[in-house]
Amino acid sequence: MPQQNVSDRKHPFAFTFRRSRIAFVIVMLLATIAVIWPGYALFSSATPLILGFPLSFAWIIFWVIVSFSAMMALYISDSNHEEAD
């Protein structure tokens, strides 16, 4: 469908198939660094308590939510760009 190529050019910041995948990989690399050293070392203390959870625990839960959101966004983007099979 040539129209889609044209629309890609019109919107240089549109989330194309390739761009959304690159964005996703970057978020997941960040998540990886966040849950091991050195990212986790910065948020490794027991205090303060966040919603009752120690910081070290809340930080990991936070990244579960981030990666869930990132995967959901990629899934929606892929569904728009790919053919169903």
Binding site: A41, S44, A46, T47, L49, G52, S56
Partner: peptide, 22 residues
């Protein structure tokens, strides 16, 4: 009496090192 209270009690009992990653 709650999740926050539980973790506070753990720290007050001298187990703060346990809650510190890793």
């Amino acid at each position: 009496g709650g999740i926050g209270e539980m973790f506070t009690t753990i720290m007050d009992a001298g187990h703060e090192a346990m809650l510190q990653a890793p």
